[in-house]
Design a binder for these strands. Structure first.
Length: 255
DNA sequence: GCGACAG
DNA sequence: ATCTTGTCGC
């Protein structure tokens, strides 16, 4: 249902050099300023009954794998309610290569979106956005392909360096992720994302932070604000958790 | 040559 | 990402 910009589709048949060239183009097409219709304050997990206005549709995207096939899923949420789920099972053509993830998983994700009947106002991806060697991670690449506001939420840092050590910080704490010399199209020191402590217990099991970065049409601070509004008692944002569970149950049916 | 490296 | 049992704690 969601229209696609064909010139940006991540074609896994491209050579590595062509992939990197496309990523530069994607980064040039990406907008890292707030450009969306909804009010960020309307993004929440509250139940529909207690709310007045129209809540934005937020999509969570995740994948699971079977041999050489990907199970890609999209879960649409409005407030705390799941309003639609869609999935696609696709053959994988290339292996995982750090920095080129969107060329492996992009096609399968596009296939899952084609099964969706509604268009999301915001998409939360499992992986990096601007925190990427060419500032064109999965969240940025697919955000540009769909021209939809998007954020990337990663459990591990791909590149860049935290302004401060994030180890064992309290819940709600955040620090900038600054571009280092591995980010080819940024000035060293540019702010490209946040390390965000979405969950922390009082004692020992120290939880690692999330690495949040803009995908498309969202700024660095807003990306983290939105993610914070989508985290309800768990480390990962709720749309991501729902997508995670749906991917697991779908995978079980195809195994 | 060595280390780093989303999912 | 994936392969996997039990275990500690609220």
């Amino acid at each position: 249902m969601t229209p696609v910009r064909p010139e940006f589709l991540p074609d896994p048949e491209l050579s590595r050099e062509e992939m990197e060239t496309l990523q530069y183009d994607v980064a040039d097409a990406a907008r890292w300023t707030d450009d969306f219709d909804f009010d960020p304050r309307d993004v929440s997990l509250e139940s529909a009954a207690s709310l007045t206005g129209d809540r934005p549709l937020v999509a969570g995207v995740d994948q699971a794998f079977l041999d050489d096939r990907a199970v890609s899923v999209v879960v649409l949420m409005r407030g705390g309610d799941v309003v639609e789920r869609a999935h696609a099972v696709t053959d994988l053509s290339i292996p995982y290569v750090p920095g080129l993830l969107s060329f492996r998983e992009g096609g399968p994700i596009v296939a899952a979106f084609e099964e969706l009947s509604a268009d999301p106002d915001l998409v939360v991806f499992d992986g990096s956005g601007r925190i990427h060697y060419r500032q064109a991670g999965l969240a940025t690449h697919l955000g540009v392909v769909f021209d939809v506001p998007s954020v990337g939420v990663a459990k591990n840092l791909l590149c860049g360096r935290p302004r401060e050590d994030a180890e064992g910080r309290p819940e709600g704490w955040r620090t900038d992720i600054l571009a280092d010399d591995t980010v080819e199209n940024a000035e060293s020191g540019d702010r490209i994302g946040h390390a965000y402590q979405s969950r922390q217990y009082d004692s020992s099991p120290i939880i690692n932070p999330l690495y949040v970065s803009p995908g498309h049409r969202v700024s660095v601070p807003t990306a983290t604000d939105l993610v914070s509004r989508l985290c309800g008692g768990y480390k990962l944002p709720e749309p991501t958790r729902r997508a995670d569970a749906y991917a697991d149950e779908t995978k079980a049916e195809y195994a």
